[in-house]
Amino acid sequence: MPVRILMYDDHEALRQSMETLIREEPDMEMIAAMSNAETVETDIRELKPDVVLMDIDMPAVNGVSAVKRIRQMDAVLPVIMLTVFDDNENIFNAVCAGASGYILKRCATEEIPSAIRNVLSGGAPMTGTVARKILQMVPAAKGPDTENVDLSQREVQILQLLARGFSYKMIAVEIKISMDTVRFHIKNIYDKLHVHSAPEAVSKGLKGKLISLLF
């Protein structure tokens, strides 16, 4: 079955462009493209998407608020932010809200299909400039105290691989464990760090010096 994609963006031209792009991917289907996220909870329940593409700057309910609302009802549904903004505040707010990835609209044509496949494999797809900004933001990021977080040696290893951009499948191959075991460890990491996404886990792991930028 094709991957079911739900999109929110208030620009009609971009919605049409993305629908055309997705239509060319044989393993993907755009099930709906909405102009706003006011009914996001109902949409998720009724349409049952596999991935959500979310613009940040929308009227009524912006993308960050919409992600927070999604996370209240579904902690694991992949949500990729699709936006023109690459400023620190928008990136940080989106990651902390539980976004799974962050792609700039100017890069959408080249990056969105692979980003969708990446996020479904457990990755955290980001446009390169955004990834660099997140790493630069880490020292000033606000988050819960990580001094007393007790990650196992294996969990630290997996978190370090997430920081390097490894997908769940890549992690499984790298350290020779099953995908189910990877998911088990990552769930424990999220629970211990009180996060809902790989980017947020990496940011808090770096801030708390649980992992290092030196790979």
Rank of each mutant, 00 (worst) to 15 (best):
Val202Phe: 11
Met81Ile: 15
Gly165Ile: 12
Arg23Gln: 14
Gln16Asp: 14
Arg71Asn: 02
Glu174Trp: 01
Asn36Gln: 13
Thr146His: 03
Met54Trp: 07
Leu151Ile: 13
Thr39Phe: 08
Val61Lys: 12
Asp74Tyr: 02
Met34His: 12
Ala32Asp: 13
Val76Ser: 10
Ile22Met: 11
Ile171Arg: 04
Gln160Asp: 04
Thr127Lys: 05
Gln72Ser: 11
Asn62Gly: 08
Arg183Asp: 08
Leu104Asn: 06
Val202Ala: 09
His196Gly: 09
Met81Gln: 06
Thr181Glu: 11
Gln160Thr: 12
Asn118Trp: 00
Thr20Pro: 00
Asp43Glu: 13
Asp43Trp: 04
Pro125Gln: 08
Phe184Pro: 00
Lys192Met: 08
Ser203Arg: 10
Gly123Cys: 04
Pro49Phe: 02
Tyr168Asn: 12
Ile189Gly: 01
Pro59Arg: 06
Ala94Glu: 08
Arg71Ser: 04
Asp57Gln: 12
Glu111Cys: 06
Thr83Ser: 15
Ile5Pro: 03
Ala94Pro: 03
Met179Asp: 04
Met126Tyr: 04
Gly128Asp: 10
Ile116Cys: 02
Val119Lys: 05
Ser197Asn: 10
Ala124Gln: 07
Met170His: 05
Ala131Cys: 06
Leu151Glu: 10
Ala163Glu: 06
Leu53His: 04
Met58Trp: 03
Glu111Asp: 12
Ser212Cys: 07
Met137Leu: 15
Gly165Tyr: 10
Pro59Cys: 07
Ala115Phe: 03
Val173Gly: 02
Gly128Asn: 05
Ser100Asp: 15
Val52His: 05
Tyr190Lys: 11
Ala37His: 05
Ile44His: 01
